[in-house]
Simulated assay, not measured.
Amino acid sequence: MFIISLSYKKDLSEVDKFIESHILFLDKYYSEKKFIFSGRKNPRTGGVILVRNVDRDTLQEIIKQDPFYQNEIADYDITEVIPTKYDEDFKIFIEK
């Protein structure tokens, strides 16, 4: 499981130009059951994506498809997480 932390490196006016295509990118990986959640940071300086069912190399390839990556809108910080304790409701997201 991975946490991707995006940090915008361009003004929000540039971010907003690519938000619709970024949402389509997210939708693709939600439909493939790879993304668990995503959302904006508050204040709006970037976003976070929680990812499952991929290895680091595959994740790097997925990120390259993001319009924010392709248009140099954001930097990506990837952290691998191995859940060892979690709420029972979260159990369905834990890889076996």
Rank of each mutant, 00 (worst) to 15 (best):
D16G: 08
K96L: 10
L59Q: 03
Q70P: 01
I23H: 13
P43S: 08
F90Q: 11
V48C: 08
T45P: 04
K28T: 13
I82C: 09
R52P: 01
G39M: 05
Y76E: 11
Y29I: 00
D27V: 02
K28G: 03
E20H: 12
N53P: 05
K28H: 08
E32K: 15
V15L: 05
L6P: 00
Q60I: 11
I78C: 06
D57W: 00
D27R: 12
M1H: 11
K33V: 04
L12W: 09
K9E: 08
D11C: 03
D57E: 15
Y29W: 06
D27S: 13
D66W: 02
E32A: 12
P43C: 10
S31P: 07
L6G: 01
L59D: 01
I63G: 00
L26G: 03
N53Q: 11
S13T: 13
K10R: 15
E95I: 04
K17H: 02
K34Y: 00
E72M: 05
I63R: 00
V81N: 06
H22S: 00
A74W: 04
I78Y: 04
S5E: 15
F37L: 15
S21Y: 01
Q70A: 07
K64W: 02
I73A: 02
I94S: 10
D75M: 08
K91M: 10
L26M: 15
A74K: 04
N53L: 03
P83H: 12
V15E: 09
Q65M: 02
D27L: 07
Y30T: 03
M1R: 09
I78V: 15
E14T: 11
K17Y: 02
I49Q: 05
T84D: 12
P83L: 12
Y30E: 05
A74M: 08
D27F: 02
R44L: 12
I3E: 07
K85P: 00
P43Q: 11
D66V: 02
K41A: 09
E80Q: 13
K9M: 06
F37P: 00
G47W: 04
S38E: 10
Q60T: 09
S31H: 11
V81A: 08
Y86R: 08
I92T: 14
I94V: 15
S21T: 07
R44D: 14
S21R: 03
V81S: 06
L12A: 08
F25D: 07
